[in-house]
Simulated scan of single mutants.
Amino acid sequence: MSEPVVRDNFSRGEAVAGLTWLSVGALVSVVLETVYLGWWSFLVALLFNVVLTKTARLWSPRPGVALIPLVAWLAGFAVALALLPPTAGLVALPLAGIAGGVWPLLRAK
């Protein structure tokens, strides 16, 4: 069985571009999760934010940098909360999003 190849010779510009695209993905995710709010949104927020944080860790080992997509997701959520009428589901959604975004960092320790 061969070992996975991890690319670590990328430029700072590539890392910034990667984190930018992850943040765009986070914003698209939060729009879909808030517009089509249902129980599936909680699962999607949890799992997709896990993926975003794990992928961000590939671009930087620093936990603060790895949380950039989660911060973008939370900013998008704050805008959605200001525009949409608050419901119990909408208010509880960030718990799933934050848990998913932070979990890979806690698990790595």
Rank of each mutant, 00 (worst) to 15 (best):
M1H: 14
E3R: 13
E3L: 15
E3G: 10
P4W: 07
P4V: 11
P4R: 10
V5M: 15
V5G: 08
R7N: 11
R7T: 14
N9R: 14
F10N: 07
F10Q: 10
S11L: 07
S11R: 10
R12V: 08
G13F: 06
E14Q: 13
A15F: 02
A15H: 06
V16A: 10
L19D: 05
L19V: 10
L19R: 09
T20Q: 04
T20Y: 09
T20W: 07
W21Q: 09
W21H: 10
W21S: 10
W21C: 13
L22A: 04
S23T: 05
A26S: 03
L27N: 06
L27H: 08
V28S: 03
V28I: 13
V28E: 00
V28W: 03
S29E: 04
S29P: 00
V30M: 06
V31G: 04
V31H: 06
V31F: 12
L32A: 13
L32V: 12
T34W: 08
T34D: 11
V35W: 11
Y36T: 12
L37G: 08
G38E: 08
W39S: 05
W39M: 07
W39F: 09
W40D: 02
S41T: 07
A45C: 01
F48N: 01
F48K: 00
F48D: 01
F48C: 02
N49G: 00
N49P: 02
V50W: 04
V51N: 01
V51S: 02
L52N: 02
T53Q: 02
T55G: 07
A56N: 02
A56H: 03
R57S: 10
L58K: 11
W59R: 11
S60M: 13
S60Q: 13
P61G: 15
P63I: 12
P63E: 08
P63C: 08
G64M: 09
V65G: 11
V65P: 14
V65T: 15
A66H: 14
I68L: 13
P69R: 02
P69K: 04
V71Q: 05
A72K: 09
W73P: 01
W73N: 06
W73T: 04
G76N: 10
F77R: 07
A78R: 07
A78L: 15
V79N: 06
V79P: 06
A80H: 07
A80R: 11
A80S: 15
L81V: 14
A82R: 08
A82C: 03
L84T: 13
P85T: 14
P85C: 09
P85N: 15
P86E: 15
T87Q: 12
T87F: 12
A88Y: 11
A88S: 15
G89N: 05
G89C: 08
G89H: 08
L90F: 11
L90G: 13
L90C: 12
L90E: 09
A92Y: 12
A92T: 11
L93D: 02
P94I: 04
P94Y: 03
L95H: 03
A96S: 12
A96Q: 04
G97V: 00
G97P: 01
G97Y: 00
I98A: 05
I98S: 04
I98V: 15
A99G: 09
A99E: 01
G100S: 05
G100M: 01
G100E: 00
G101D: 02
G101I: 04
V102W: 01
V102L: 06
V102N: 00
W103D: 01
P104N: 02
P104T: 03
L105M: 01
L106S: 00
R107Q: 06
R107K: 05
R107C: 00
A108Q: 09
